[in-house]
Amino acid sequence: MASEATAREAQLQALRYQLQPHFLFNTLNAISSLVVSKQPERATEMIAKLAALLRNTLSFPEAHLVTFREELAVTEEYLSIEQVRFGPRLAVSLSVSPEASEAQVPRFLLQPIVENSIRHGIARCPNGGEVSITASVIEGKLRIDIANDHAEGLMHSGDEGNGLGLANTRTRLEKLYGEQGSVTVSTAQNNRFLVSIQFPLTTASSIVS
């Protein structure tokens, strides 16, 4: 029951983000620009992406666990919208092992963290930067790293939005995995902001059996 409530919470959080003027109205403005500059294919493509993202967030599937592959697909949809908005300022790199790809993860786990890394990281870098997502399985645990460049002298760990996002993620992992789940934040490597998530590996087949 408790994990269901936190799943609902995560869904609300994702929805709240997507309906924020920062994301929604700027995305609609980008679409409007594509229309007035006579680029209908790009406009309809972006409308479809936005619709897919909102549809996924608004849907109420039975399972609050999905495969990492599915969770990543939605995040990629979101990232491709942001890439149209930011242009060459936003670089994305993904590296996911096949094993990690099939791992079960809480729905909406990835999105809020990636959204934060863009909103508080890349969006504040005049020359842009990279968001990288890596996932692998190490010693029976799934490990997901989300790293992003950040503007000189600007650390976003103190930001309200980011703090709240991570607090929700932490609570959720704790309810699902107890002490086996963890979220850590660091800025060590190459002055990049890094969020690392770890929890025990489960797959769809292991849950059924």
Binding site: N26, N29, A30, S32, S33, L34, V36, S37, V84, R85, F86, G87, R89, A123, P126
Partner: peptide, 26 residues
């Protein structure tokens, strides 16, 4: 800072013959 946002403005301005875009900044 968003390239498409600039496109939206410059494209709309191009419909007005007296509007001369002298620069774009990000």
């Amino acid at each position: 800072d968003e390239p498409l946002a600039r496109v939206g403005i410059t494209t709309r301005l191009s419909a007005y013959s007296d509007m001369l875009v002298v620069g774009e900044c990000s």
